[in-house]
Simulated scan of single mutants.
Amino acid sequence: MPHFIMDCSADVLNNHDEQHIIKQIHLVANQTGLFDEGDIKVRVNAYNTYLVGNKQESFIHIFAHIMQGRTIEQKADLSRQMVTMLTSLFPDTPNIAMNVSDFEKATYCNRAMV
């Protein structure tokens, strides 16, 4: 954790390969200083079938799932930095967004904890 999951229309992968995109998302997440680099996880889900505002229009949405404890300002800055990077990487993609969700520390469990 944290997890950065990019949902996108499949056509955006025509501009850059998935490895490049994943590395850029990882880089922005790491540069915020909010996470240990070795904990950052990034995935891409590309969709061929989708609608955006009842149109088939290119989109990118990053879902960030992070451990609670960051301020609203830190999370907002993370979103701004990520959307800024994606906008420069994909200038012709009209729909680019991100949201941040917190994990509850009390309910989180991973393999190392059992």
Score class of each variant (00 low, 15 high):
Thr71Ala: 10
Glu18Ile: 11
Leu89Tyr: 11
Tyr47Trp: 15
Ile21Phe: 05
Lys41Cys: 07
Asp17Val: 08
Pro91Ala: 06
Thr93Glu: 05
Ile21Val: 15
Ile72Asp: 14
Asn45Val: 12
Val42Asn: 12
Gln74Ala: 12
Gln68Trp: 00
Val12Gly: 00
Thr32Asn: 04
Val44Leu: 12
Gln74Trp: 03
Ala64Val: 09
His16Cys: 04
Ile21Lys: 04
Gly33Leu: 10
His16Leu: 14
Leu89Lys: 07
His20Phe: 15
Lys41Glu: 11
Ala76His: 12
Val44Phe: 03
Gln74Cys: 09
Leu89Ser: 07
Asn14Ile: 03
Tyr47Gln: 14
Pro94His: 10
Gly53Tyr: 08
Arg43Pro: 04
Val28Glu: 06
Gly53Phe: 10
Asp77Met: 14
Leu27Thr: 14
Asp17Glu: 10
Val52Leu: 12
Arg80Phe: 05
Val28Cys: 09
Val28Arg: 05
Val28Ala: 02
His65Asn: 10
Met67Asp: 04
Gln56Cys: 08
Asp92Lys: 15
Gln81Met: 13
Gln74Ile: 01
Val12Leu: 04
Glu57Tyr: 00
Glu73Thr: 13
Asn48Met: 09
Lys23Ile: 00
Leu34Asn: 02
Phe63Gly: 10
Lys41Val: 01
Leu86Thr: 03
Arg70Ala: 10
Phe35Cys: 04
Glu57Asp: 15
Thr71Asp: 12
Ala76Gly: 11
His26Asn: 06
Lys75Gln: 15
His20Asn: 08
Ser79Asp: 01
Val12Ala: 06
Asn30Val: 04
Val42Gln: 14
Thr93Tyr: 05
Ala46Trp: 00
Asn14Thr: 13
Pro94Phe: 01
Thr32Ala: 01
His20Leu: 14
Ile72Glu: 15
Val12His: 02
Asn48Phe: 10
Gln31Ala: 06
Phe59Leu: 02
Asn30Ile: 00
Phe90Leu: 08
Gly53Cys: 11
Glu18Asn: 06
Gln24Cys: 13
Phe90Ile: 09
Gln81Cys: 11
Leu51Asn: 11
His61Cys: 01
Gln56Val: 12
Gln81Thr: 07
Phe63Ala: 15
His26Ser: 04
Leu78Glu: 00
Ile40Lys: 01
Thr32Lys: 05
Val42Asp: 11
Glu73Val: 06
Phe63Arg: 02
Gln74Arg: 00
Thr71Asn: 08
Asn14Ser: 13
Leu86Asn: 01
Lys41Pro: 05
Met67Gln: 14
